[in-house]
Simulated assay, not measured.
Amino acid sequence: MSASDFKPETWTLNANEALKISIVGENAIQFLPLFTYPIYGDSEKIYGYKDLVIHLAFDSIAFKPYVNVKYSSKLNDSDVSNVEEKLLSFLPKDDVIVKDEAKWVDCFTEEQTNYNLPESFCKVSEYSLNGEEFTVYKTNLLDDFAKRMHRRVQIFSILFIEAANYIDENDPNWEIFWLLNKKTKQLVGFVTTYKYWHYLGAQSFDESVDDKFRAKISQFLIFPPYQNKGHGSCLYEAIVQSWLSDRSITEITVEDPNEAFDDLRDRNDLQRLRKLGFVAALREHSEHAFLESNRRSFKLEERQFNRLVEMILLSNKSPSFEMKVKKRLFIKNFDALSGTEPEEAKEALMNSFVLVKDDYMRIIKSVEDFKA
Rank of each mutant, 00 (worst) to 15 (best):
H55W: 02
E237G: 00
L314P: 02
G339T: 07
K147D: 08
R296K: 15
N268L: 11
L87Y: 05
A163Q: 13
E292K: 14
L273W: 08
I61K: 11
V67D: 09
D211N: 14
L75V: 13
F290P: 06
Q219G: 01
V105H: 00
L308W: 09
D95T: 06
K64C: 06
L264I: 13
D171R: 03
V69R: 05
L117K: 13
F156R: 01
I364E: 08
L329D: 13
A280M: 03
F190A: 01
T193D: 05
V67Q: 04
V367Y: 04
L349Y: 09
F220M: 05
Y199V: 03
S60W: 02
N316F: 06
S157D: 14
R328S: 12
Y40L: 15
A348P: 00
S338I: 12
D206Y: 13
A28E: 13
N116Q: 13
D358Q: 14
T250W: 10
I46K: 00
S352C: 08
K317V: 02
P118F: 12
F370Q: 09
K327A: 10
A3C: 03
K182N: 11
V124G: 09
K45P: 02
K326F: 03
R295A: 08
I61C: 05
Q241D: 13
F121D: 07
K50E: 11
Y236M: 12
Y199S: 02
Y115L: 12
K324L: 13
T109I: 01
L291G: 10
A102L: 11
I217Q: 10
S43K: 12
N130S: 13
P172Y: 08
L179Y: 06
A163D: 15
K64E: 14
